[in-house]
């Protein structure tokens, strides 16, 4: 008979891993729903199809992550996705904002895609194999999301009126974008075990080093000292009316018949 692993540590590790999966899944889920709102009204037909398709991809990534989480905790993936109250979602504050205009969407997506790229690169090295495998798959799709957004960022930055709108959106979003790298509860345990190969704070620094020169080169603002100093503790727990509204939209069908099978 082999000695069982220390049960306390096991539970702690599992809970921390669940928090990491939930945070990542909620980010993908909520940004996917926000940007799906462009379906039918994007700047041109081709962009409409592209944006809708990318939003679908994100919701697909969320689904895969919720399923991983459900396996870990014995819950139901749909129930995690649609069965929670708004306050129980753990997406970064970046996803608390309403869709707003096209420049705002491009600014938010650019911040998110670049941050997600840094995070996925780390998760692809996770010692938790189901996660490292999923992250490797997601990276392949996120590559063209990032290319797409990079194209739009440079395009909008190249004209005066659009650049001003982009800059304004970035100024609004910076503090909340940094919340993508808010520490996950129990993170130390995951870093020790390699489930999260590096602390969020390290990833945050790497992300800032990558995108700051790009934005500066385009004449777009980086984070202010205040943005950088903003408390990260509630970066994934504060919710807004804009998100409560979106939550009402995306849970509408599930709420109409609880537990229905499709």
């Amino acid at each position: 008979m082999t000695a069982p692993e220390t049960p306390a540590l096991d539970t702690v590790r599992r809970d921390a891993l669940a928090q990491l999966l939930l945070a990542t899944a909620d980010d993908e889920f909520v940004i996917g729903f926000w940007d799906s709102e462009w379906t039918g009204i994007a700047p041109m037909l081709e962009e409409d199809v592209a944006t809708s398709s990318i939003s679908q991809d994100e919701i697909g990534h969320a689904r895969a992550l919720y399923e991983l989480l459900a396996e870990l905790t014995g819950q139901d993936a749909d129930e995690i996705a649609f069965g929670r109250q708004p306050e129980a979602y753990r997406h970064a504050a970046l996803m608390n904002h309403a869709r707003t205009d096209w420049a705002f969407t491009v600014a938010r997506r650019y911040l998110y895609e670049t941050a997600d790229t840094v995070r996925l690169e780390a998760l692809a090295r996770s010692s938790y194999e189901p996660l490292s495998q999923l992250a490797a798959k997601m990276r392949r799709e996120e590559r063209y999301h990032l290319m797409h957004l990079d194209t739009w960022l440079r395009r909008l930055a190249g004209s005066d009126g659009a650049r001003e709108r982009l800059a304004e959106a970035l100024r609004t979003l910076w503090a909340d974008a940094l919340a993508v790298f808010s520490p996950v509860p129990g993170e130390e345990v995951l870093v020790r075990g390699g489930e999260l190969p590096e602390p969020m704070a390290t990833l945050r620094t790497r992300w800032l080093e990558q995108i700051s020169p790009v934005l500066a080169g385009l004449g777009l603002p980086g984070p202010t000292a205040d943005d950088l100093a903003a408390g990260a503790e509630d970066g994934r727990t504060r919710r807004t009316d804009a998100f409560r509204w979106l939550h009402g939209e995306f849970t509408m069908v599930a709420a109409s018949e609880r537990g229905a099978t499709w």
């Binding site: 081709e46 962009e47 199809v49 592209a50 398709s53 063209y144 797409h148 395009r155």
Partner: peptide
Amino acid sequence: ELAMHYAREF
């Protein structure tokens, strides 16, 4: 560049 993205999506 955008043509390539749109071709990929379509």
